[in-house]
Design a protein around this nucleic acid. Structure first.
Lengths: 160, 160
DNA sequence: GTCTTTCTACTCGGATACATCGTGTCCGAGTTGGCTGGG
DNA sequence: CCCAGCCAACTCGGACACGATGTATCCGAGTAGAAAGAC
């Protein structure tokens, strides 16, 4: 069970869009250069962010991507759901009904599968932990590590 | 990010091994028949359980698999780690160091990546929730749904 | 009748193909900005 | 000097290959049990 690396890219791109400011959008080409990533594939992930309503895109010359709302209102859960999709990691196939359980009365399956319930509970804990952290929290932690990172990024883009 | 369905199979097989009792092992063929699963592939998952020390295998005629310890001492985390492997779902590739961050001083990267920290925190919540639930808890929940499931399973295997 | 030996059938275990999803790439439609020509 | 129209460059967006991981399968090594034969 490995999470798509597009999630990592998307979160870093959101932070970078915030540091670059809202005055002008940032194109896929420039974003990709900022992290040395393949531009077309990064574009695919950014499209997913747009579809999820996290970012907005403007076409044409001097176009690119903008954040749709401030980082305080974007959670890690939003980004993960946008890239990975809405499906749960653990998919119950109801094997309890097959084979030895095939001739059981229907009442035995009235309540959800115990295995699924247990796995689902753990997954809810994961999702809640993701939803409790906003990208503003992540930004604050990143700036605690490197206080001038925003300024540094803008300077790098000014000369590239 | 989809979890391998082998996890579901493994948990159900552990419960079934418990219901079948410890007096004699259950072979891959019989286990597969009990859930209508492809025997060779199920065997692969069971081997993973043996490697992880959750089950034991005995070869030869009348051989098969046994639980290595009671369900009270097997957590969902144990089974997931046995099937899915020890790697974390979110893999940090340190893209913060590339591109715009390439010319930053090394001190900026002294502490771990903020994105990784946030994702890792959520993943720890998931792992903890898995480790807090034993298979005995799952069995108790299953038997609350269908009280006579153990008896039912033994009867089915007696005539198949 | 009992023990030893052999043989057979059954079991696990790892090595081998196939399918699906994630990864990476490309090209076309649309839009913006700038340039040019005229008024 | 100002404005309108045209052109060109740049952008996103979806459609198209490649590779890796998960899924499914097969066959061989090893062992327990049973049966047969000798004592």
């Amino acid at each position: 069970m490995r999470m798509s690396e597009g999630v990592e890219w998307a979160v870093h791109c959101c932070l970078l869009l915030d540091w670059m400011g809202e005055d002008r959008p940032v194109s896929t080409t420039r974003l990709a250069a900022g992290f040395e990533l393949p531009p077309p594939y990064l574009n695919k992930q950014l499209q997913a962010l747009v579809r999820a309503g996290i970012a907005t895109s403007t076409a044409g010359a001097r176009g690119g991507f903008r954040l749709a709302r401030p980082l305080e209102r974007i959670t890690l859960m939003d980004v993960v759901a946008a890239i990975e999709g809405p499906d749960d990691a653990f998919q119950c196939t109801e094997i309890r009904r097959r084979g030895a359980g095939a001739d059981s009365p229907e009442s035995a399956f009235a309540r959800p599968c115990a295995v699924f319930s247990a796995m689902h509970r753990a997954e809810l804990a994961w999702r809640r932990a993701l939803a409790d952290q906003t990208l503003a929290d992540v930004r604050a932690n990143a700036e605690r590590n490197a206080p001038r990172v925003g300024e540094h990024v803008r300077a790098w883009y000014a000369r590239n």
